[in-house]
């Protein structure tokens, strides 16, 4: 059976489009505003929510997300807030919520307990930027036991062997890192992304979303021309910082417009749903 994330991706593909995955950190600028912003995200055209857990040592993140997650921690964000936020948002929208978290908070909370509470709150799985499949046996067992998705990352530098490991270990989609770098808006989305997606698909990946550096509708349009979806983070965090939940709604609508443009490749029957 497909997971909810997989169904959303497959349904979008059936209509000839890719998905938009939108990232915001939990508890920024405060718990209530973050709930409002996440709902705005869902209502304005995001297909999958990526909800970030603020962490003291975020090695994959650029300054925009660092500032936001630091601010959330400074205002007293706790892991219990994460589950409250998921509960509140999933009561208002069907958009699936994947949690993006560095590994230590999960280890300290208890891997099984985290999986259990995530499921109970209405979350659908985890994206784990500093957990590679090689170190993930406990999480793989816990996510299987609780029916949760697990999204591992693939990088342009990954060997084919490692890509296969990311593909077979992931459920939901594989997160293709567009470039060798950290999160943050970039003028151009690297050509490395297209080649990485091609390699992943060639090795059997059914759903690949591309993230890191995507900040404009034209990026979304170009990325969803060859991948299942585009992941946008820092750009939305900036929108929230500057314009609150309304700013997030505006930015999301603009990004989602990139999905509506026609893709000749999507209309080609040979590239239909797998």
């Amino acid at each position: 059976m497909s997971s909810r994330v997989e169904s959303v991706i497959d349904a979008a593909r059936a209509t000839g489009r890719g998905v938009l995955v939108g990232y915001l950190p939990a508890g920024f600028p405060d718990v209530q505003t973050s709930i409002d912003a996440l709902i705005a995200l869902a209502e304005s055209g995001v297909d999958i929510i990526e909800l970030g857990v603020p962490y003291s040592d975020p090695v994959m993140d650029g300054v925009v997300i660092q500032r936001a997650t630091n601010a959330a921690l400074e205002t007293g964000f706790r892991l219990t807030d994460l589950f409250e936020i998921i509960r509140s948002v999933s009561a208002k929208t069907d958009t699936p919520i994947l949690v993006m978290t560095y590994w230590n908070p999960v280890v300290q909370y208890g891997i099984n307990r985290f999986a259990n509470d995530l499921k109970e709150a209405g979350g659908v799985g985890l994206i784990t930027p500093d957990l590679i499949p090689d170190e993930a046996s406990e999480w793989i067992a816990a996510s299987d036991a609780h029916g949760l998705d697990r999204v591992f990352l693939a990088a342009p530098s990954s060997t084919d062997e490692r890509l296969v490991s990311a593909i077979t270990s992931s459920r939901g989609f594989v997160y293709a890192v567009s470039t060798m770098g950290i999160t943050g808006a970039r003028a151009d989305v690297d050509i490395a992304a297209r080649s990485l997606v091609e390699r992943l698909e060639g090795l059997g990946a059914k759903r690949v979303c591309v993230g890191v550096g995507i900040s404009a509708a034209e990026h979304v349009r170009s990325v969803t021309g060859y991948a299942s979806g585009a992941i946008v983070g820092s750009h939305l965090v900036s929108a929230l910082t500057e314009g609150g939940p309304e700013g997030v709604a505006r930015a999301t609508s603009e990004l989602a417009a990139g999905l509506r443009a026609e893709h000749p490749s999507r209309l080609n029957p040979s590239k239909g749903p797998q």
Partner: peptide, 12 residues
């Protein structure tokens, strides 16, 4: 011990 790092660093 182990390796709890982004996949992008594994090759290096």
């Amino acid at each position: 011990g182990g390796r709890f790092v982004p996949e992008a660093l594994i090759a290096a």
